[in-house]
Amino acid sequence: GALGGGAGGLAAWQAGERDPAHPLLRRYLTPWPRLAAGEALAGLATAAVDISDGLLADLGHILEHSGGGAHLEPEALPLAEGLVAALGEEGARQAALTGGDDYELLVCLPAERLDEARHRLAVLELPLTVVGQLTRSSGVSGVPAAQRTGWQHFRGATPGGTP
């Protein structure tokens, strides 16, 4: 699914937007956790987490447990409707990487299972977008260190929240 909608919706709310039909505000105020998608990918995915604290922060949880790293392709990130118009291209990419409250799934799949996973999600009318790959080396590459923030509970977004 698309990313950055939660952060974009929060920004819209803070700017005074109250129209419940606003696409970003709708994403923020009425998130839709991807429970059916998680069930559909059972047996295929080797790891999965919902993106509640931001893609980078939640990827960090997977990497912490796997002992590996990841290479991300930020230009491949699917952006929420209206996000670029609201935040600009750079702000939209940052919201997609670090904004919380998206509740989309971040899943790890072997390459040979990708077509089957897409087929299972197509039945639910959900896309599956490859945004990077796991690596044996630690840390995250493909994203400048200055952009690596994530939601830190009780402190807000702070630098260094992820590997």
Rank of each mutant, 00 (worst) to 15 (best):
R26Q: 15
S52G: 15
A21T: 13
A40S: 09
A12P: 09
L29F: 15
G6M: 04
P31I: 00
A48S: 06
R27N: 06
A48T: 08
L29N: 11
G5Y: 01
A36D: 10
A42T: 13
L35I: 14
L29Y: 07
Q14G: 03
Y28R: 09
Y28S: 05
A37E: 13
A37Y: 01
L29T: 15
A37P: 04
L25I: 05
W32V: 13
Q14S: 10
A11G: 02
G43N: 02
G8E: 13
I51W: 07
A42Q: 12
D53Q: 08
A21Q: 13
A42V: 06
A36Y: 03
A47H: 12
G4I: 14
Q14P: 02
P31Y: 05
G5T: 07
A40F: 12
D50K: 06
G43C: 04
A12N: 07
L41S: 09
A7C: 00
G6C: 03
D53V: 04
W13V: 12
A37V: 02
D19F: 00
A42R: 11
L44S: 06
A12W: 04
D50R: 06
A21P: 00
H22E: 15
D53E: 14
A12T: 01
L35W: 11
P33T: 00
I51M: 09
T46C: 14
Y28A: 13
A21E: 15
W13H: 12
T30G: 09
W32L: 14
A36I: 10
S52F: 03
G16H: 09
A45M: 01
H22T: 14
W32Y: 08
L41P: 02
E39H: 15
D53N: 11
L29I: 12
G38C: 08
A36N: 05
G43I: 02
G8Q: 09
A37Q: 04
I51D: 05
